[in-house]
Every structure is written in structure tokens, then in C-alpha cells.
């Protein structure tokens, strides 16, 4: 069970959080312009990286804020945490 440093609340146990999958997949601004393939890419296709993954987390049982995390999925080491809308820090 990780310790996650919520950018709004500080360090908390992982069980207060919900994972929200891969980060930086922006919802298309003009979905109707997309082909079925492009829409499927947005909707379902994931990098599912083994290694450094950028992902979304939500402090669901806390401040309910969403934020981003950089985590190594091969060993669950959290590399960085940053707020929504911020540029990912270099690691």
C-alpha cells in the first residue's frame, strides 16, 4: 500500500485514493470530426506501460481533487506528483 502525497492534503495512505488510469489523454475537442478508429483510440487504447507511467489519481476519500502522478509500474515507486494542468516535472 503506497503512501501518496496529495498535493492538497499531504501524505495519506493509498486506500484514500482512487486510480484514474493513464494521464494526458485529452478528451477530443471535436469528437464528431474523428474517425471511428481515432475515437476508439481515445476511448479504449492505452499504453499500459511497464515502467514510467503518467497517470491520474483522485483523493476520493479526502479532498476529492484529481492530480497526476508519475510512477514506475515495474516496482510501484512514485517518482513525482503534480497538479492537474501543470506540466509534468522532469524526472
Amino acid at each position: 500500500m503506497f503512501v501518496i502525497n496529495c498535493p492538497y492534503c499531504g501524505e495519506r495512505d493509498q486506500q484514500e485514493f482512487k486510480a484514474g488510469g493513464e494521464a494526458h489523454i485529452e478528451r477530443p475537442k471535436q469528437p464528431t470530426e474523428l474517425s471511428d478508429d481515432e475515437w476508439a483510440e481515445y476511448l479504449f487504447m492505452r499504453k499500459n506501460i511497464k515502467g514510467i507511467q503518467y497517470e491520474r489519481w483522485n483523493h476520493a476519500h479526502g479532498c476529492r481533487k484529481w492530480f497526476n502522478m508519475i510512477r514506475d509500474t515495474s516496482n510501484d515507486e512514485i517518482k513525482a506528483i503534480y497538479k492537474m494542468g501543470e506540466k509534468p516535472p522532469s524526472i
Binding site: 503506497f2 493509498q14 486510480a19 488510469g21 493513464e22 509500474t73
Partner: peptide, 11 residues
Amino acid sequence: YVSYTQKGSHQ
């Protein structure tokens, strides 16, 4: 969450 560690959380 995505993980390749073959470990999950206690809860």
C-alpha cells in the same frame, strides 16, 4: 491501478 509488480494492496 496499473502495476507489473505481482503485488497488490492489503486493503
